[in-house]
Design a protein around this nucleic acid. Structure first.
Length: 548
RNA sequence: GGCCCCUUGGUCAAGUGGUUCAAGACUCCGCCCUCUCACGGCGGCUACACGGGUUCGAAUCCCGUAGGGGUCACCA
């Protein structure tokens, strides 16, 4: 077989040489040890927690080493294509504080140097290498139909041999030039397959950055490298792109681990140096007592939009992901609570090998801490933006009076206390928790624990004796006095010793009033609340409460 | 089913042969502080999957077993 002739037959339009292509993508001018990483999503526009998780790892490794982090759109499967997906990806990642240096949709002077960053636009590049492989007898056209492939698999399953298009099971591997010419002339579609040089029984040792050395059987599959439309498969595109774009470390999910042998052979056959690989563990979820990989379909919480919608602060999500990503991050962060994440010495070796269960409680806890570090002004801006995007109809209700809102935040965040309160999780929850500051959202949550008669008498006494000009102490003393009138003691120590001697204590009086004014049995300091909502609103709520 | 990965408390995890009869964080429970809540403080429950080795000594090394996960496409 004349391989040169076959190559010419298959790729008549390719006139560029490999040397010419290589010359277009010179080595990057980076300091010693700098890592080049990339994110290569398919353009479905759906970006999930797992993407952020590995994206964060990519970003840290690149930037910590003074390298480059770029975005490449892997659109070799046109069935998945969604318009404008790269904008979504870029904006979502940006929301979480992860920014690309170069790549698809990124404007930078050097950004185009290694492009195009859409694989479909690199078809001619892949064809140069494909032609070259054919010319060396390392690839061949395959005319098998899906049915034929299925038949082969069926027989292999029956005979209990390794399934797939390999060794003696191949049908098109040894076609003559004449046969190929004939089929092409007849208009038969074909894929291009690798002529695997692997031998059954041989092993390869592969060193993963996270998992250490892994032993695999050598690849023997004649994998498809170009689909019948001439677009490369992931494997082929990966080898060529990461070579030309000079990626130094490929960080990807562990579902790719088993295709490492294929990639090893592809790199070998193409004469490329293998990049470093880091296969990350999946984020898992508990489902019916079993751990399982978070799935796009079943788990809405996988979508990053989900967190944006609920108004999770990006910093909280990022910190949580970092604790999962690097086992020693949490302790470092404890010691340096106010240092930027970027200062943490990130290490690939510290990445977990086993899949972590996604823990919303832990996320929430971290978010509470993050919010407690912010200033009311920052929280105000954050909430305002969130509300504008997700609840535009509520913007006027909440943000008409900025001064009032800041006061609410100061109180609910406890900025004037010795220690901050920590009960803000996300924007949605914050807004719900401050409902009672606004008539439009105020509603009764808790029931009174005392009988209607007592409640009424206490509230009336409260209204009669309330003095808006009193300070916090004065207010509380008044509550105590009211309590004494009805047999509720102000002496907590006495009460604890002999609760049966009293109808209740002052905290019960406070609770009765609290429920009538804010609708629930817990809240920050009542006096402070009344000085935000004003005497009129407070009195009005009690009146209405009594009327019921 | 073949191949590969993983396995310390409910969860995330420290730990790489001996000051660990196993850190820390989250959750849960109790107590303290306290007008409620939150914060904070103190304390508690709960773990090296199992079985064999190697060794003076193993969570740490080896071999099996079990369980979980991934992958076996002209999808990435």
């Amino acid at each position: 077989m004349d391989n040169q002739k076959l190559a010419q037959l298959l790729f008549p339009e390719v006139t560029t040489t490999i040397d010419e292509v290589e010359a277009r993508f010179p080595a990057r001018d980076l300091p010693e040890g700098a890592q080049v990483t990339r994110m290569g999503p398919s353009p479905t526009g759906f970006i999930h927690l797992g993407n952020l998780y590995s994206g964060l790892a990519d970003e840290r490794i690149a930037h910590q080493s003074g390298g480059i982090f770029y975005l490449r759109i892997e659109d070799t499967d046109n069935k998945r294509k969604v318009e404008g997906a790269e904008d979504i990806i870029i904006s979502v990642l940006k929301y979480f504080g992860i920014e690309f240096d170069q790549g698809a949709g990124i404007e930078s002077p050097e950004s185009d140097a290694y492009g195009p960053y859409y694989q479909r636009q690199r078809k001619d590049i892949y064809h140069v290498y494909a032609k070259n492989l054919v010319a060396q007898g390392l690839a061949y056209p395959c005319f098998c139909t899906e049915e034929e492939i299925a038949q082969i698999k069926e027989k292999q399953t029956e005979q209990k041999v390794i399934t797939g298009y390999h060794t003696t099971w191949t049908r098109c591997r040894d076609l003559t030039l004449e046969q190929i010419e004939e089929k092409i002339a007849a208009g038969m579609p074909y894929t291009l397959r690798l002529r695997s040089q692997g031998k059954e029984g041989n092993d390869i040792i592969f060193r993963d950055q996270i998992r250490g050395s892994v032993k695999f059987p050598e690849n023997i599959m004649d994998v498809v490298i170009l689909k019948k439309d001439g677009i490369p498969t992931y494997h082929f595109a990966h080898a060529i792109d990461d070579h030309l774009m000079h990626t130094t470390m490929v960080i990807r999910g562990e579902e790719w681990l088993s295709s490492v042998p294929t990639h090893v052979e592809l790199h070998k056959v193409l004469g490329f140096r293998l990049p470093k690989y880091a296969h990350t563990a999946h984020l898992m979820k508990m489902d019916n007592g079993n751990k399982r990989k978070l799935s796009k379909r079943k788990d809405p919480e996988l979508s990053l939009d989900y967190y944006r919608q609920d108004g999770y602060h990006p910093q909280g999500v990022k910190v949580y992901l970092m604790t999962l990503l690097n086992s020693n991050f949490e302790q470092w962060y404890d010691k340096h609570p106010n240092s930027p994440i970027e200062e943490f010495p990130y290490s690939v070796k510290k990445m977990s090998k086993s899949g972590a269960l996604f823990d919303i409680m832990k996320l929430n806890d971290i978010c509470k801490n993050e919010f407690s570090k912010l200033e009311p002004e920052d929280v105000y801006e954050f909430l305002h933006t969130w509300c504008t995007n997700y609840h535009p109809d509520m913007v006027d209700v909440y943000f008409a009076d900025k001064e009032k809102f800041i006061k609410i935040l100061e109180l609910t965040m406890g900025v004037h206390q010795k220690r901050r309160r920590k009960d803000f999780i996300n924007a949605k929850q914050i807004m719900e928790s401050i409902h009672y500051f606004f008539d439009a959202t105020y509603h009764i949550v808790d029931e009174q624990k005392y009988d209607a008669e007592t409640v009424e008498a206490v509230l009336k006494a409260y209204l009669a004796s309330y003095d808006h000009s009193a300070d916090a102490n004065g207010w509380f003393n008044n509550i105590k006095e009211i309590g004494e009138q009805f047999g509720f003691t102000g002496n907590m120590r006495e009460y604890k010793k002999n609760p049966e001697n009293f109808k209740g204590n002052v905290s019960h009086i406070a609770e009765i009033i609290r429920i009538a004014t804010v609708g629930q049995s817990n809240s920050p300091d009542q006096w402070a609340i009344y000085h935000i909502i004003g005497e009129d609103m407070m009195r009005e709520r009690i009146e209405k409460y009594l009327a019921k």
